[in-house]
C-alpha cells in the first residue's frame, strides 16, 4: 500500500518520543532521571533508554583509564611545602624518538663536569602538534610520561598557552593514581618485579637467569596489556 512505509517510519519516531517520557516516569520515584549519578550511568550504558543526553558541564562522562589527551610528566608526591617531587623522567629520549609528530623537546641536565645527567633540564610539549597518540606513554620505560585525562584546555591565546613546559607538565604520582587507579597499581607491581629481578642478578651471577628472563617477560606482559 502506498504510504505504508512512511507511516511505519513515523511509528518508530513516535515510539522514540513516547519512550523518552516513559523512562522519565520510571526514574521519577528514584530521585529523577537527570542530575542523578545512578540514572546517568544507566543512561549512558547500553541499557539506557529514552533521552541519552549528557548535560555537560553539569554532568560529565567519566573518562576511561586508558583515555588519552595531552601528556604529562609524573613526579614523586611533593614533600610538604613544595609543588613537585623528584622527576621520574631520566631524559633518555625514547618518547622523543617514538613521537610521530615530533612535538617533544628535551634538554638533558648536565653534571658540573659536563657529563650528561639522567634528568631533564627542560621539557617541552607543543600541544598544537601533539596528536594524543599515546606512544610516548606506551614506550616510556620509567612510567614517567603519561596521558592526561584533563580535556578542558580551551584557551584564548595559543602563543602562551599551547607550549607546555616542565612546570606545566609535571604532576604528582597521586594525581596519576587518582585518574587511573588500576593502571597505576599494575605499574607499581611491575616496577617491584623489576627491582626484584635486579637484586637477584646481583645476588647470584649467572644463576637464575631463566627466572629473571621469565620475570621480565611477565613484567612486560603485565605492563603492556593484560591488566590495563
Amino acid at each position: 500500500m502506498y504510504g505504508f512505509g512512511i507511516v511505519k517510519g513515523l511509528g518508530v519516531v513516535i515510539n522514540h518520543f513516547i519512550g523518552s517520557y516513559i523512562d522519565d516516569l520510571r526514574w521519577a520515584g528514584k530521585g529523577g532521571r537527570y542530575y542523578n549519578e545512578e540514572a546517568f550511568n544507566v543512561r549512558q550504558s547500553p541499557l539506557g533508554e529514552g533521552v541519552k543526553t549528557v548535560f555537560y558541564p553539569e554532568e560529565k562522562l567519566s573518562t576511561p583509564e586508558r583515555f588519552r589527551f595531552v601528556p604529562f610528566l609524573v613526579t614523586d608526591d611533593p614533600p610538604p611545602g613544595q609543588r613537585w617531587g623528584h622527576d621520574w623522567c631520566t631524559a633518555c629520549g625514547i618518547c622523543v624518538k617514538v613521537c610521530p609528530a615530533q612535538c617533544i623537546w628535551i634538554e638533558r641536565a648536565k653534571q658540573p663536569n659536563g657529563r650528561p645527567k639522567s634528568q631533564p633540564e627542560k621539557f617541552f610539549i607543543d600541544i598544537d602538534m601533539c596528536m594524543n597518540c599515546g606512544l610516548c606513554a606506551e614506550f616510556c620505560p620509567f612510567d614517567a610520561i603519561k596521558m592526561d585525562h584533563d580535556y578542558e584546555l580551551a584557551s584564548y591565546d595559543r602563543s602562551t598557552a599551547h607550549i607546555h613546559d616542565k612546570e606545566r607538565l609535571s604532576k604528582p604520582l597521586s594525581y596519576w593514581r587518582e585518574i587511573s587507579p588500576k593502571k597505576a597499581e599494575a605499574e607499581d607491581i611491575a616496577r617491584k618485579w623489576a627491582e626484584a629481578a635486579k637484586t637477584k642478578k646481583r645476588d647470584k651471577d649467572g644463576e637464575g637467569r631463566e627466572d629473571r628472563i621469565a620475570e621480565v617477560a611477565a613484567r612486560q606482559l603485565y605492563y603492556k596489556g593484560l591488566y590495563y
Binding site: N41, Q44, S45, P46, P64, E65, R66, F67, R68, M131, N132, C133, G134, L135, E138, M147, K182, K224, G225, L226, Y227, Y228
Partner: peptide, 29 residues
Amino acid sequence: EAASGSRMMCNYMRFSGVAYDLPDDVRGM
C-alpha cells in the same frame, strides 16, 4: 575509547599484536 583511549583515533594495532588487551569494564559494565 575504553579499549584504546580515544574515541576516533584508536591507534590500537601494533605489529604482531594489539596495543592493549580488552579493558576490564566499559561504562561501568
